[in-house]
Write a protein that binds this DNA or RNA. Structure first.
Lengths: 222, 222
DNA sequence: CGTCAGGTCATCCATAAGGAGTACGCCGGG
DNA sequence: CCCGGCGTACTCCTTATGGATGACCTGACG
């Protein structure tokens, strides 16, 4: 069974070029063309292609936003989006990937690689242009230099103390923590004092810092 | 000019197989074979290959640690490491990438793709097996779900206030901040009071939380 | 059954932190 | 030339926080 394709690009010439290349492959079938982002979302809804070749820069709606909507609107039929661009600017790439794109190629890819790439994303895998892969890797390596939670005395904490610790890390006052845990404020103070002692911290402010640095608290998931 | 290769794998059969495949390409030249991690590091030092094909699982020293050492020991001659493995287990991949590998392929890649991959990494770019690319992307997308720094009144802060804010976010006391910025503690208190007001926070503890949640402070870089 | 750890609560006390108000000098714009 | 924003600084006052101790209860363990 052949892979059904939708080409979204505002330049007719580009669309024609891709169409020619892809129609030459007997397992690929171009079922439609869209000239802007809105059009792409619309046609994807109608034609239910397996893969959408999406240009980043388009009128009306850029490829990234179009990807977001298109994937959000996707029913049970899975749609993969392969982004195509002339230049490989960072912001575009990262945003596109976050938007849910399955891949990212530069428009100067050799025809056979484009076809191969389409087959890859059609199978649910992903692929990126080598230069982009390199950047993504270095980004990734830098982003998570492995912070395996240096539990410097963190294991010393009792379950209750850890619980209080988490509350402190949320910015709660002793009174609020007391209310939340249904104990007296005095008790909370005892726990706080103990955990500060065990962790070698001066005050709850440093506790919050440690919580975030050690992964006890994680930005984004409150 | 041809690409000089070093093959590191503990199985002779695998080495022979790769050698056969790669020697068939006239722009690739296998200059050596290593049978374990230490051997690989050693030979890389002597032979100065352009690309090392590194198996993950090897005696003496696994491919990841070998990669780390090999890259650390690299002089001006750039060495690229292309990891090869039979299974694509997550931990391996992430560790390998952090160790500095330029790519990651499964051993079942078709010969022509292997050759193409080697050329890519030799040029300083990177490449990953599609299934790995997919995981890296989802990892990446999840890791940074875009935190556009909700500057809820954050822009309202003056330069000085922001500076004090950063100090607070590091867990410093007013006295410490005063010492660091070379102003009186009173002044620090003024700034703190103002920024708490502007940000709608109750105390410095909440300020620290906001700092991390908004990206003003980032775990890891402190 | 005695002991000990962990959780609970209290009191006393010192201080850092936060709120409110005031003031002075500098600088850029009207 | 005067005003407003900003950075600096001080005083007075209130409260939250943290340190030091002591005590009671419960469950686990030898």
């Amino acid at each position: 069974m052949s892979v059904r394709l939708l080409i979204a690009d505002d330049q007719a010439l580009v669309r024609a070029g891709f169409r020619m290349i892809l129609d030459a492959e007997d397992d690929l079938e171009v079922v439609g063309e869209a000239t802007d982002g809105l059009d792409a979302v619309e046609q994807a809804k109608r034609l239910k292609p397996d893969v959408v070749l999406m240009d980043i820069r388009m009128p009306e709606l850029d490829g990234i936003e179009a990807t977001r909507r298109l994937l959000a609107a996707a029913g049970e039929h899975p749609v993969r989006v392969l982004m195509l661009t002339t230049f490989d600017l960072n912001e575009y790439v990262y945003e596109a990937l976050r938007a849910g794109a399955s891949g990212f190629l530069l428009k100067d890819v050799p025809p056979e690689q484009l076809a191969a790439g389409i087959r890859v994303v059609a199978q649910g895998e992903a692929l990126l242009a080598p230069s982009i892969t390199r950047r993504l890797i270095s980004e990734f390596a830098a982003a998570a230099p492995v912070r395996p939670t240096p539990p410097k005395g963190l294991n010393e904490l009792t379950a209750r103390e850890l619980e209080v610790f988490r509350c402190v890390a949320r910015g709660l006052s002793n009174a609020e923590i007391a209310a939340e845990l249904i104990v007296s404020e005095t008790t909370v103070k005892t726990h706080v004092a103990r955990l500060l002692m065990k962790l070698g911290l001066r005050d709850r402010v440093q506790a919050v810092v440690l919580a975030y640095e050690s992964g006890i608290a994680v930005p984004g998931k409150g």
